[in-house]
Design a protein around this nucleic acid. Structure first.
Lengths: 216, 216
DNA sequence: CCCCTATCTATGCAGTGTTTAGATTGCCTA
DNA sequence: TAGGCAATCTAAACACTGCATAGATAGGGG
């Protein structure tokens, strides 16, 4: 126990220890294996100790979710910056979303199960998710402004890309895509690259109107 | 206790009662509220009774998942039959997926959380999901065969549509899309209709190649 | 130097999944 | 019709969980 940087209280920075221990447990044994009692046991403290850092179990997951969305946002921002034109921005964002999931498997698992964070009791869970979506929305609107995407209400296109990213990662985390990739002899990240490329090709073709007809 | 159709044993068809009670509980209070003890209590039986019908908690969820995928398959099949051309088939399938979620909220919640069914212990959970996907795959291949979709490996397009459907429903169940629709003054099903329409418009434009380049 | 407050321990309650041993009860057969 | 078998249910127990409470401890600011 060398005199570390910040060790504010008698037992070290338990809060940070619990968070990192939770991430490790999730990566190893899944989110179902995470209990405050087990984390406390692993940390060598009493079962009640975690409650001085997290009011309840959901608060720990809420912290993971908030941290995860911050990490995701920086990644998406970098992806947007690396693209050379508005359509490539869309493709890069889609790929970056999956790359984030690959690099932060524990975070994404919790982010895809927001009920773990008890959003009613911990509103920051809900709030944390808006920034990445707003980045995507602004990217769609920007692309429409320069005629790189079909004009009209951006909402359908936004939800198309957003759902696509979330769905792919969900299917990966839940198993089916992992399984399929083993059959195809590829990786989920590579598969998503081909999916994003297909999207890009569809978008780059002559313009059309994505608005729904008023009639039927 | 009138002499019902099938009441095989002394306490009625407890298995079916537990399943329907679980669905009702999920719809009312979420999947987190489902415990075998609570279901047993609600059914007026002892805590151990459910274990004579489901070897463990996961088996009950596994049964819900299997039932759900069967319901989903019939819905997707009907959607495919109602469409007038191969591209419309894709759109109808996307909308039907969301319509299924709207009509079977309890089933979809469990289907989106396959870990509840403990897939390692209950392989039927994993198996149940393949039929709907294969229907979508064959629809993509059929459309490619008549040049209604870009030619090449169907895998990217398949995962594009599949991820889109799963992602949209996930975002709905988890909250964000429900919230957004309240702001927009629309419903998730209507929103998905516009998304699917945007997809259809993109697909109907002049043909292109969705295959990823070998270089970069 | 002393107190104050954050932190941690100890303990207990209610709820959970699951197992075991034993009681009940309907059906099937002899 | 009587016997027995097997499916079903009860009762009780174990280990685990989240969480609340009361009290001990110990570092930092007055």
């Amino acid at each position: 126990m060398a005199p570390d940087a910040t060790r504010p209280y008698h037992h070290g920075d338990l809060r940070e220890l619990l968070l990192s221990s939770a991430l490790a447990t999730i990566t190893a044994d899944g989110v179902g294996a995470v209990s405050l009692r087990r984390l406390a046991r692993d940390a060598g403290v009493s079962p009640g100790a975690p409650y001085h850092h997290f009011p309840d179990r959901g608060a720990l997951f809420a912290a993971v979710i908030v941290e995860g969305h911050a990490l995701l946002l920086t990644r998406l921002t970098a992806a947007r910056g690396a693209a050379r034109d508005p359509v490539e921005v869309i493709r890069e964002i889609l790929v970056a979303y999956v790359a984030f999931a690959a690099d932060h498997p524990a975070h994404i698992r919790v982010m895809l199960r927001p009920e773990l964070g008890d959003p009613l009791r911990h509103p920051e869970v809900t709030a944390a998710g808006v920034d990445p979506v707003e980045l995507l929305r602004s990217s769609v609107v920007d692309a429409q402004r320069v005629d790189a995407l079909p004009p009209g209400d951006p909402e359908p296109l936004l939800h198309l890309f957003w759902s696509l990213a979330v769905g792919f990662v969900t299917l990966w985390v839940d198993g089916p895509i992992e399984t399929r990739c083993r059959v195809l002899g590829t990786t989920p990240l590579e598969l998503m690259a081909t999916v994003a490329h297909a999207v890009e090709n569809l978008l780059r073709r002559p313009s059309g109107d994505t608005r729904a007809p008023v009639g039927h």
